[in-house]
Design a protein around this nucleic acid. Structure first.
Lengths: 122, 122
DNA sequence: TCTATTAGTAACAAAGTAGTTACCAATGTG
DNA sequence: CACATTGGTAACTACTTTGTTACTAATAGA
């Protein structure tokens, strides 16, 4: 859940996009985001807890960089959902599935499978 | 933008996963989600506004189904970020990039950075 | 050493989110 | 027709999120 929640905020997505092009300091990231530095700082903390960014201390500066692997759960979820949904099922096939699911739902409610009248499928 | 926010909630993600396996009614979706039907109903509304699900009225029932294309912006964003971040850049290369960016950040206040670092690592 | 820069934390206010119960409308079914 | 089923909306509450300003700590540099 962590990475999904982290991606919900547009500022955090912009930060990740920026970091995808290379590491940056907090002041640099703040410079182009009409919000205060503490706000950016907290966004970075959220991203860090989600495993999407990592920081390295360089003197008094802190260099944040993208951790692309942190996005893996998101990609995996996306793949799972879209693959199971099937590769471009035509509309009329979805309709057929639709009727099927309705019948199943009713059967489950009263647990009597002898009640089927399969006159819709051809 | 919208779809990202919709995916932030675990209940909504579960609903999408469920609908990926076929359409379902609201009562069916509610049956396996220890929250009330109005809550599910509102989640479905959010998903609908995000373009991730669609509904079809069948008598007094409403059949929701996944709209997989609605996830396309998410996948596109993921692709963009991970592609730009590069395919598995080794740690020492990231360090090099790190130093490069730090110097550039300082230069930006004075001179114009008219160079680029586009090195492939295979 | 004194001062500027960088960055995190604390405390707070405004807004959004997610759940609840109560209610209403529409559609099947005995 | 009477009644159950299905599903959306309204009103409300509790919690979370996101921004702010003020403060503190550590490092760089004249």
């Amino acid at each position: 859940m962590e990475p999904f929640g982290a991606l919900a905020d547009p500022v955090r997505r912009a930060l990740l996009q920026r970091l995808a092009r290379g590491p940056a300091r907090v002041v640099d990231l703040t410079a182009e985001h009409d919000i205060s530095r503490p706000a950016i700082s907290r966004h970075l903390r959220v991203l860090g807890e989600a495993g999407l960014v990592a920081a390295e201390d360089v003197g008094r500066e802190r260099h944040y960089r993208l951790v692309a692997e942190g996005l893996h759960p998101v990609r995996a979820w996306l793949d799972q959902v879209t693959v199971v949904a099937g590769p471009r099922v035509p509309e009329h096939v979805l309709d057929a599935l639709d009727l099927e699911v309705r019948r199943t739902g009713r059967d489950r409610a009263q647990t009597s499978p002898s009640h089927r009248h399969t006159q819709e499928t051809g």
